[in-house]
């Protein structure tokens, strides 16, 4: 069962083993977000549909370099906190700080793929660059981070379906940054699929709707 709820709305009544994004008030569980309520299997949770990207250790994100110092780069990860990449994160070995300059490796405005390695003081997010850390592509889109989490966590289905139907190469960050490789037509198709993601709240419906929108697109261009 899934239902759209707003803050303060009762999501479920009774006793549940676990719950998230709700406040428990006696027998009642109240949502603290606009979100999709999921109740079942002893669990009650609300999947939020808006709000900033909240970094979690292990997340794969795509961020933009906004500042480069000799030994650290600041990365805009589309969140309320900054991401940082330390120079030595690029290398297995220790580096000599007196002779190293990170600005020879990364530039302002570069998109970088990385994993969230650790979060300090709840505020500073340290990133470990991906093996293919330099993100190259033909287009970049931003979708709401909460929605991105939808496709991120169900990567196997939705993300691969979009790839399959558009033929484009896609890298998706849990923080809502989507980088696409492909020609203009493929980019346009991906954009249409992402528009569907942005306009709907129901995950199951989402999957089918994307298939529908993209297959329709294929037909219209064949004729």
């Amino acid at each position: 069962m899934s239902k759209l709820v707003v803050p303060g709305e009762v999501v479920a009544k009774g006793n549940f083993r676990s719950w998230s994004n709700v406040l428990k008030k006696g027998e009642e569980y109240l949502s603290i977000f606009v979100g999709k309520a999921e109740v079942g299997g002893g669990r009650v949770r609300v999947v939020r549909l808006s709000g900033p990207y909240i970094p979690k250790v292990g997340d794969f994100v795509i961020g933009m370099v906004t500042d480069v110092q000799p030994l650290a780069a600041t990365i805009d990860i589309n969140s309320y906190v900054n991401g940082y990449i330390m120079a030595n994160a690029f290398f297995k070995r220790r580096i000599d700080p007196s002779r190293f300059d990170l600005s020879k490796k990364v530039n302002l405005g570069d998109l970088i793929a990385a994993k969230v390695q650790r979060i300090e003081r709840g505020k500073d997010v340290y990133l470990q660059p991906d093996q293919k850390w330099k993100v190259e592509g033909d287009a970049v889109f931003y979708i709401s981070p909460a929605k991105a989490h939808y496709i991120y966590t169900s990567r196997s289905r939705i993300s691969s379906k979009i790839k399959e139907l558009t033929g484009a190469e896609i890298r998706l960050g849990a923080n809502g940054v989507v980088v696409v490789k492909g020609d203009l037509k493929k980019i346009e198709m991906v954009k249409r699929a992402l528009d569907v993601v942005e306009s709907k709240y129901d995950l199951n419906g989402l999957y089918n709707e994307i298939i529908k929108v993209l297959s329709k697109d294929g037909e219209s261009t064949d004729s």
Binding site: V6, P7, G8, N21, L23, L30, I32, F33, V34, R48, L49, S50, G51, P52, A146
Partner: peptide, 11 residues
């Protein structure tokens, strides 16, 4: 504020 995804106890 709800649209911005700021957690809240009630509207």
């Amino acid at each position: 504020l709800a649209d911005a995804g700021i957690p809240m106890k009630d509207l």
